[in-house]
Design a protein around this nucleic acid. Structure first.
Lengths: 122, 122
DNA sequence: GTTTGTACAAACTTTTAGAAAGTGCAACCC
DNA sequence: GGGTTGCACTTTCTAAAAGTTTGTACAAAC
């Protein structure tokens, strides 16, 4: 009998942990979910993901591209034109992230109430 | 016609973004998923979540407790005994995170292959 | 001709994460 | 009885990450 997967996010050195962090990191989730809405150019995406710096967006997209969630299509024109979209694998995973976001957004009234209770108790 | 939810993670100042980060941050996801397996004491959880520092685990659990995903039960004995578990809301959200983790783990062979292709191309 | 936009990279600064040590006592080892 | 270990953290210090700013090479709009 063998394990179904050889990867375990609970193990510090498992490569799956890095991949999980690319997806769930502060900007990874937002980039994935934004790209699920369609194809975006770099600065377009930057405006969609409110608050992200150029550096972090570039870094995030590179990691997601390397892991095969995001597809990057560049035209060597001046000014440059680069289009980002999800791969098929990316689209699949993005749907899980969308589910999570919707869940969080719908729970927010309860979350706010819980915070008030917590802060009141100390 | 009104929006279904008043919260939007794409807006920088929306409180839902902070909550999302507590759940999806490097340690938030792992803590939530670990706690879905049952009740844990602090150091037990620390051993389960390989690589987390005491400071970050304490901080992560406090944020999750404040948001109402985690329940903390402390006995004022010496030595202290503190038990952490998920609330009902927490259990529900943890299941989404487990789905995500399983998805990532099962995709890892493809991810590794994508990385090799990416690194080979530059 | 000055500003604006493009998609970044590099240098520098600020914020955050992680490592180490302290707490106050009790239970175990020898 | 003396030293070590474990408990659940907090505080202090340092290393790493995030964020800000500047530069690029041009082209189109004002």
């Amino acid at each position: 009998m063998e394990e179904q997967f050889l990867f375990d996010v609970f193990a510090q050195r498992c490569p799956s942990r890095a991949t999980l962090e690319h997806l769930t990191g502060k900007w990874g989730t937002l980039a994935m979910v934004a790209l699920h809405e369609g194809t975006f150019r770099f600065n377009q995406l930057r405006r969609r993901v409110d608050g992200v710096s150029e550096k972090m967006l570039a870094q995030t997209l590179q990691a997601l591209e390397r892991d095969g969630f995001v597809h990057r299509e560049a035209q060597a024109t001046i000014p440059p034109k680069v289009e980002y979209s999800l791969t098929e694998r990316g689209r699949h995973t993005a749907e899980l992230l969308i589910g999570l976001i919707q869940d969080v957004e719908s729970q927010m009234p309860d979350v706010m109430a819980a915070r008030e209770r917590y802060d009141a108790a100390r």
